[in-house]
């Protein structure tokens, strides 16, 4: 007997996403039940949560698909994919730091630093371009939004 032509693989990222969705739905359902068991509280949330969990169970088999042996990614492909996800993770991380530092270090400095880091991560290697663009863009966006929006933006320099 020869080798089977198909192999079952695990899509770990999809499994993680599905776990997050399931945990959020379950936690929300339990929290809603903990708040009150009255019908005005659970009329939509409870059936929707149960339906959501059933759907998670229905999607779960798609996390373990059978793929033709020739389509199973080899080590080089996996490394390339990991690199791509790594770049996204770095940008997402920088974005997260930017968001949480806005009110601490001011919108002006946070914007300048994030645009500079973002430009570099996205492939701009000329440092004078990185510095000039980040500075000009930060000034324009801060003054532009300040003129339009009634809320004050916490600033450090501008």
């Amino acid at each position: 007997m020869g080798e089977p032509s198909q192999r079952r693989v695990v899509i770990w990222g999809h499994l993680l996403l599905l776990c997050v969705v399931a945990v959020v739905i379950l936690a929300y359902w339990l929290d809603a039940r903990g708040t009150s068991l009255k019908i005005n509280n659970l009329l939509l949330v409870q059936p929707a949560a149960i339906f959501g969990l059933i759907l998670v169970a229905l999607v779960l088999p798609q996390v373990f698909p059978k793929v033709p042996r020739e389509d199973v990614p080899d080590a080089a492909q996996r490394r390339k994919e990991l690199l791509e996800v790594g770049r996204v993770a770095l940008l997402a991380g920088a974005f997260g730091i930017f968001v949480f530092s806005l009110e601490t270090i001011g919108f002006d400095i946070a914007t300048f630093v994030f645009v500079a880091v973002g430009l570099y991560l996205c492939g701009e290697k000329k440092l004078w371009v990185v510095g000039t663009y980040s500075a000009v863009f930060s000034v324009l966006v801060v003054y532009g939004y300040q003129a339009l929006v009634p809320y004050p933006f916490p600033l450090t320099i501008l």
Binding site: L91, F95, G96, F98, V99, F100, L102, E103, F107, T111, F114, V115, V117, G118, L119, C122, G123, E124, Y133, F137, V141, Y145, L148, V149, P150, Y151, F153
Partner: peptide, 29 residues
């Protein structure tokens, strides 16, 4: 490489403008 950080920043300012607090940018993220 110019568009990605710029639009992310504009979106963040826009989301801050809606509520006037970090609630918008955190939700966006």
């Amino acid at each position: 490489r110019f568009l990605i950080p710029s639009v992310l920043v504009v979106s963040t300012f826009g989301s801050y403008a809606i509520l006037g607090s970090l609630a918008g940018p955190i939700t966006l993220f």
